[in-house]
């Protein structure tokens, strides 16, 4: 089950899409305060969004995005009832997908 939250709503002729993902987003540079060991990198590397089956955003991320990432983007030409899908993949190959219908 997906832990990603996604919302999409029309504002005029533009669909506003907002999503929240669950991810630790470790850069690979941070040291654990107790052990002094470097925490290995574990972060999302790719995010793809589709609207009504067409890719609208294809993003690449580093560890500089905050923990539990927030992302918002706008798409013109969408209409209420269209389906928005967001998928991420991290540097360990884990993936998650969520979708929403534009309200």
């Amino acid at each position: 089950m997906s832990t990603m939250k996604i919302r999409a709503a029309m504002k005029g002729d533009v669909a506003e899409v907002k999503c929240l993902m669950n991810h630790p987003m470790e850069t690979g540079l941070r040291k654990d305060a107790k052990t002094g060991q470097v925490v290995p990198a574990h972060h999302i590397t790719k995010v793809v969004a589709t609207l009504a089956g067409k890719t609208v955003m294809d993003a690449q991320w580093g560890g500089g995005i905050s923990k539990n990432p927030y992302l918002a983007f706008n798409v013109k030409g969408a209409k209420a009832g269209d389906k928005v899908t967001v998928t991420w993949e991290d540097n360990k190959g884990e993936k998650e997908t969520a979708d929403a219908t534009i309200g």
């Binding site: 067409k54 609208v56 993003a59 995005i65 798409v75």
Partner: peptide
């Protein structure tokens, strides 16, 4: 480098 977003098909 934090992130790069490629936008297409109507994405603003």
């Amino acid at each position: 480098l934090v992130a790069q977003f490629d936008l297409m098909n109507g994405a603003q």
